[in-house]
């Protein structure tokens, strides 16, 4: 299907130029991987006057790790996240999330920044960034700002981005000297699917945990109530059951053609139980390999 509407295409080589182009146009669209944008152009959901391809901007293309902070450039693809040594060694759960995004041909293009700018409720990066308390780095004509992931997501497909702003990077602070995690994603089958529910868990020293849920509310849900219950405690079956019982109160799943709200809610509890055990055992060095599907 051809794209019906016409637009100008720019491939700036600096963030400054990109921001200038963004502010110059009425309805600009940012192109990174394009896996959402091109479909939206075809379906006329987006009808921009300018498409600004950020893949030519060097400073957006790297993954760096410095002073306990991982910085993922806005043009970094999920495949690059999967292949990154520093991610594999220090943030393996990021790779675990990346592996569930689409399939190879999608991951070779799609970016995490794009994922959180599209900000659909089922975005895989949502619960990840919520749990890591990541910062979204944004540049506009008036300068830079950093937005906490919890403040970034405003609703299904709505974010904190302002007109003529560009996401330049995502900063993920290492939460502790040593940590482990687990991402469990519900799809309708083993192949590529959009999450119908997802659970992300981080296990930190001192039996501290972070829990975030995806696709069961317009924005990722950080389950602080559950975290409070868990923190410092031994992971007993009763404790897990108590946490599970809290889940329905924290989420607002919908029924659509992908799943009913009953199943989403039920599965959040199942996935939480499996995820927390996996995260905890990974923390102690004997959990399941990262990337195995727990459901």
């Amino acid at each position: 299907m051809p794209i019906l509407s016409e637009f100008e295409y720019f491939k700036p080589s600096s963030v400054r130029e990109a921001v200038r182009l963004l502010s110059k146009h009425k309805k600009p669209a940012v192109l990174a991987g394009g896996t959402d944008l091109i479909n939206n152009l075809k379906e006329e959901i987006d009808q921009p006057d300018a498409v600004i391809d950020i893949k030519g901007i060097k400073e957006l293309s790297g993954i760096t790790y410095k002073n306990g902070v991982l910085t993922i450039g806005a043009a970094v693809t999920f495949s690059e996240l999967l292949d990154s040594r520093v991610i594999q060694s220090r943030f393996p759960v990021i790779a675990e999330v990346a592996k569930t995004v689409g399939s190879v041909g999608i991951r070779n293009r799609a970016t995490m920044a794009g994922n959180i700018c599209s900000a659909v409720a089922c975005a895989d990066s949502g619960p990840l960034l919520a749990a890591y308390e990541a910062l979204i780095l944004v540049r506009g004509s008036k300068g830079k700002r950093k937005v906490l992931a919890a403040k970034w997501f405003k609703g299904n497909k709505r974010t904190d981005i302002k007109k003529a702003e560009l996401v330049t990077a995502i900063e993920i602070p290492l939460p502790a000297r040593r940590h482990a995690g687990c991402y469990v994603k519900l799809g309708r089958y083993s192949g590529e699917d959009l999450a119908q529910a997802s659970v992300l868990i981080l296990a930190l020293p001192g039996k501290q945990y972070r829990v975030a849920l995806g696709a069961v509310s317009p924005v990722p849900v950080r389950a602080s109530k559950i975290e409070r219950l868990l923190n410092g405690q031994h992971l007993s079956d009763e404790l897990i059951a108590k946490c599970q019982a809290l889940i329905p109160g924290l989420i607002s799943p919908i029924t659509d053609i992908r799943a009913t709200k009953e199943y989403r809610s039920h599965m959040c509890q199942v996935m939480f139980a499996r995820g927390i055990r996996a995260a905890a055992s990974r923390f102690s060095g004997n959990g399941p390999e990262y990337g195995v599907n727990l459901i």
Binding site: M1, Y9, K11, L31, G34, T35, I38, N39, K42, V51, D53, K55, S79, G102, S103, V104, G105, I106, N108, R109
Partner: peptide
């Protein structure tokens, strides 16, 4: 499928598979 779901439009770009139905031609420059 024309929307990135099926992989029949796969081509290698710099040795990596991409789905050419969701790539603008200008991106191949």
């Amino acid at each position: 499928c024309d929307r990135g779901d099926c992989g029949t439009c796969t081509v290698l770009m710099n040795g990596k598979t991409v789905r050419s139905c969701i790539v603008l031609a200008v991106e191949a420059d």
